[in-house]
Amino acid sequence: MSALILQDCHKKTIEEICIYYKNDPGDLIKILHKAQTAFGYLPESVQREIAFHLKISVAKVYGVVTFYSFFTMTPKGKHPISVCMGTACYVRGAEKVLDELKDQLRIKVGGVTENGKFSLDCLRCVGACGLAPVLLIGEKVYGRVEASQIKGILDSYQD
């Protein structure tokens, strides 16, 4: 778990989110969604703070965070890359695209490049199966991607 020392402004953000949901543990998943939108990820310190406000154990919060694949405890890169691993994309060659990305970026799935520019994840079906295999960088969708195009796509992200 990467460490994030919470500043007062961070604590205030978390408190506001919890108050919005009346500190109700039944809304834990909604609260985690909001917190992840605010911080980009859910490090230990954020989870502790949420547990404190909802008056539940940190273990319970941690249990929920690790159960759902949407929640992450590591920060994403500046340009988060997601490869669709739905079945349609899989049979149309998504694995080759993923391998090429791993080679080019020299990171594993779930990892972030050293300079923090790219992070790599898999996701389950964006529903654009007509464009399979599909790759997302940030919000941009790349359809009918071939491994040979990966270098060009990555190079287009200069910043």
Partner: peptide, 25 residues
């Protein structure tokens, strides 16, 4: 509306209900 958070098992109705209650699905 309640949002799921990426767990296939939550398509099972009892797991879905657990998830709606803010628990592990």
């Amino acid at each position: 509306l309640r949002y799921g958070a990426g767990a296939f098992v939550c398509g099972e109705e009892t797991a879905l209900i657990k998830s709606m209650e803010g628990l592990r699905g």
